[in-house]
């Protein structure tokens, strides 16, 4: 009784000051909660590229049937003259047949989706407008439905490995989300042989100079 009264309140024997421990435990809890959540929501789409074929694949594997081409292009021509020794940004010029000297700078905010020559709608970068995600998804579905329709119209081939693919040909500037959205939509309608068109910008570095495709299974 004597000792109890002599000591200050915080150092009373047998009574722990829990506050710092609780602080620490909360820190730990928050830390682990955050790190757990980060891992849990992430998924992946598994794709396969052709082995040792690279860009030449389109000529080596000549498909029996006509392919279906999905085109994603960024809107807005805004010409920029780069110079005659430009090899790297040849893609847009290549596509628009305007020669090596001119390159068209495109705006990734608004993109157009086409299946062959059928316009399937416009895609808006979700970063600029978060609400556009739902509209974009509708466009992806539209694209996949159209591609499926054209795919079904082709007669079936004898050799499934030679079946013509669905090709996704996206402009350099197109945001990754649109390409992934289309792949995802195609997967939803059970289209599996999707290929990506190569990019002539990189052909000089990693390719044969020919326009080829990457395959996805």
């Amino acid at each position: 009784m004597k000792a109890k009264s002599r000591l200050p309140r915080e150092e009373k024997p047998g009574e722990l000051n829990m506050t710092p421990m609780i602080d620490v435990v909360f820190q730990l809890l928050i830390f682990f909660m955050l790190s757990m959540r980060f891992r849990a929501i992430e998924g992946k789409l598994i794709t396969t590229l052709p082995q040792d074929k690279g860009l030449q694949s389109s000529t080596v594997l000549s498909p029996e049937l006509e392919e279906v081409r999905i085109i994603l292009c960024a809107a807005g021509p805004n010409p920029i003259n780069i110079g005659s020794n430009d090899r790297y940004y040849g893609e847009s010029a290549h596509r628009s047949n305007k020669g090596e000297h001119e390159r068209i700078e495109k705006d990734p905010t608004l993109c157009k989706a086409l299946v062959e020559k059928n316009a399937c709608g416009e895609l808006i970068m979700t970063e600029k407008n978060e609400k556009s995600a739902a509209a974009n998804r509708a466009v992806y579905k539209n694209v996949a439905a159209k591609a499926k329709q054209l795919d079904d119209m082709r007669p079936s081939t004898r050799d499934p490995s030679k079946a013509a693919p669905i090709i996704i040909d996206a402009d350099s500037e197109v945001p990754y989300e649109h390409v992934l959205g289309v792949i995802n939509a195609l997967r939803e309608v059970d289209i599996s042989n999707v290929e990506f068109a190569g990019n002539p910008r990189f052909d000089l570095y990693y390719g044969s100079g020919q326009r080829g495709q990457f395959q996805r299974r």
Binding site: T126, S172, V174, P175, E177, H178, N199, Y206
Partner: peptide, 19 residues
């Protein structure tokens, strides 16, 4: 890749990965 990353850089990775 970030959702807004230009597609060309994804293509570049694919090309380097194969080549």
């Amino acid at each position: 890749a970030d959702r807004s990353a230009p597609w060309q850089w994804v293509q570049m990775i694919m090309m380097i990965a194969t080549k």
